[in-house]
Write a protein that binds this DNA or RNA. Structure first.
Length: 587
RNA sequence: GGUCCCAUAGCUCAGCUGGAUAGAGCAACAGAUUUCUAAUCUGUAGGUCAUAGGUUCGAAUCCUAUUGGGAUCACCA
């Protein structure tokens, strides 16, 4: 639309002798109750024109209509100049833009970006909150790739620490040698079961101690189980063979379970980092900070940074006993990642409960003079809440990821069977279709809302399959494929001359695909893709309903509509791909 | 208590750097299928954009305060 803003700038210069930068002129889409496709708001120019908004609009409109052959007409309503672009303009967009093989592929930006996401703890299975994280991370990776970045998908696995020892200890004490095979339970679920058992037994001990006169705070510290877990952690850090072996075994169970879940969710990673390898990092950064005078030491030897001038607090970076804290290892890991990849940007997909943590982390790296610190970004997303409130693993009030996928597949199956459309499908095809639709519904549900907003999930109200949903879009794609499969491949090169409103609306939307990718990439926001693809699907369904493709008035327009349908199908498929959602050929 | 995030139709959400009468979907109601998949399409109804001020020709959007909800502020991770 640059040619319009340039023409407007020229018009304002010629008519009112005001120099305007075309990039300062903003156009908007014409509201659908008015004639036209592009609208210029003329209020800002009435000062220099010294005329009414209507007159100003008419003058500018007349000017650009004479100047630009693409402008076929215009109308002025109050301060709004509505511009109609000619059919031939839209057909140019279609034939030499949308229809080109490379449409929607943006040329390389020559930049590398790392997206860290998922980052699970190895003491329990994945739940709905992790699912949102995984969907966001994977989708953002895809979007950045489409926008021309080289992307490294990283997973920083939290595989050590007191919480892991809790599961290990409970298994040791109460497990009686149970394994995933012997119990017939997925590895991550088996380990999670012992995490819950630990908590239950621990609470019993606390109660007993409180009954014997201790305060709750004392009891929490003195309970034998927690002490044992702490001893186990120390042994782990000391490399105790027995503890390390148990740790390796149980983590192995968890990884096997995670691999299965990741596969069903359709996510993948290029690089795994493990905290067991990174937890000691960051000590040299503490030294560096002390040397540079960015950090300071208190009398007891502990190391801090003072961020009060930046509106934050003082932050501990090394305990008085010389051991490091959580943020220290994150400082070290950030440096490690940069050393490994020298990426231009690094995105952390982590819940908004850690907003403060990342603010501090990035600020410290900046103060240390790390040039790459400005490329760090915390993609902060809202928690997934249940109607009953927050999900808590320890209390078992979580929506389990594996169960959820099962339920989505089951619901997809019920919907599909009720419609009776899959009689001709093989069992394998049915299974795949149910998975595709079920995951499409779930992923779309999670991705269509702005990441930073919290999400309410009611397990009793199943995810919709109609309206603004994944299956609606998938269905639209299947419809398109169904039509296209009825005719031989289209080799027609002649072009049509006139457009109907439904056709033009669809072209207009399709032409926005590249800029939609760019803005989704800039904002790290899959929701903008999701909402855009919904608009495309809706516009296609309208087109499909109003006009016949195969029974078009003449052969030329039939070929055109087939090409238009194919283009819409392709954008839907590619766009859904950016969300990590597959679309079926039939459903 | 300090800091940060959120608040739009009964419900779930759009609303781009301020622009027209604030839009979708679900739920409700009324219609559309001898024609390319009705998981679709069309229509009706549904709103003091949390509240009060301010900036502006113009505010859901920007600023301030208030209310409500959430998060965070550990020698935890």
């Amino acid at each position: 639309m640059n040619f319009i803003t340039e023409a407007v700038a020229k018009a304002v210069k010629t008519l009112y002798d005001l120099d305007l930068n075309p990039s300062d002129i903003s156009l908007q889409e014409t509201r659908k109750e008015f004639e036209g496709q592009v609208t210029l708001v003329t209020f800002p120019y009435t000062k220099v024109s010294r005329k009414s908004p209507e007159q100003t609009g008419a003058e500018i409109g007349e000017f650009i209509k004479n100047k630009l052959e693409q402008v076929s007409d215009f109308n002025v309503i109050k301060g709004f100049l509505n511009i109609s672009l000619s059919d031939s303009y839209w057909l140019d967009q279609f034939y030499s833009g949308i229809l080109c093989p490379g449409f929607g592929t943006i040329k390389s930006k020559g930049k590398k970006v790392m997206v860290e996401y998922s980052s699970p703890n190895t003491n329990k299975p994945l739940h709905l909150g992790h699912v949102r994280n995984n969907m966001l991370g994977f989708s953002v990776s895809r979007i950045l790739e489409a926008a021309g970045y080289e992307v490294v998908k990283a997973n920083l696995v939290n595989d050590r620490g007191i919480h892991i020892c809790k599961s290990m200890l409970a298994w040791q004490k109460f497990g009686q040698g149970e394994t995933p095979e012997s119990a017939g339970i997925k590895g991550d679920h088996l380990v999670g079961k012992y995490y819950v058992i630990f908590d239950k037994e621990y609470k019993k001990e606390i109660e007993a101690l409180v009954a014997s006169g201790q305060t709750e705070e004392e009891a929490k510290k003195n309970a034998p189980l927690i002490k044992e877990a702490q001893v186990m952690l120390q042994k782990w850090e000391a490399g105790d063979v027995e503890v390390i072996n148990l740790w390796k075994t149980m983590n192995g169970w968890v990884y096997a379970g995670f691999a299965e879940t990741y596969k069903r969710l359709g996510v993948e990673f290029d690089q795994f980092y493990y905290e067991s390898n990174t937890y000691l990092l960051g000590k040299d950064i503490v030294e560096e900070g002390l040397q540079k005078g960015v950090f300071f030491q208190k009398e007891d030897g502990s190391v801090w940074i003072d961020l009060t001038a930046d509106g934050l607090d003082q932050k501990l970076l090394r305990r008085s006993d010389g051991t490091s804290v959580y943020i220290t290892q994150d400082l070290g890991t950030a440096q490690l990642k940069y050393n490994d990849y020298h990426m231009d940007e690094s995105i952390y997909v982590v819940g908004n409960e850690q907003d403060y943590h990342f603010k501090v982390l990035f600020l410290i790296l900046e103060k240390l003079g790390k040039t790459w610190a400005k490329g760090l970004y915390h993609l902060s997303y809202g928690m997934v809440d249940l109607p009953s409130g927050k999900m808590k693993s320890r209390e078992g009030t979580v929506v389990d990821a594996d169960d959820l996928v099962d339920e989505m597949e089951q619901t997809a199956k019920e919907h599909t069977e009720a419609l009776g459309k899959v009689e001709s499908f093989s069992d394998q095809e049915k299974f795949e279709l149910y998975h595709t639709i079920g995951m499409g519904a779930l992923k779309y549900f999670l991705l269509k809302v702005d990441p930073r907003k919290r999400l309410l999930f009611d397990p009793n109200e199943s995810v919709d399959f109609q309206g603004h949903t994944g299956p609606f879009i998938q269905y639209t794609h299947a419809r398109i494929r169904s039509v296209l499969n009825r005719v031989a491949a289209n080799t027609e090169s002649a072009r049509i001359e006139k457009l109907l409103p439904e056709e033009r609306d669809l072209i207009l939307l399709l032409s926005q695909y590249p800029q939609t990718i760019e803005s989704a990439a800039t904002g790290y926001n899959p929701a903008s893709i999701a909402n855009y693809i919904y608009d495309v699907a809706k516009a296609f369904n309208k087109f499909y309903h109003e006009l016949s493709i195969l029974q078009a008035e003449d052969e030329l327009s039939k070929q055109f509509r087939l090409q238009l349908s194919a283009a819409a199908g392709s954008v839907i498929k590619k766009g859904m791909g950016l969300l990590g959602i597959d679309v079926p050929e039939r459903m």
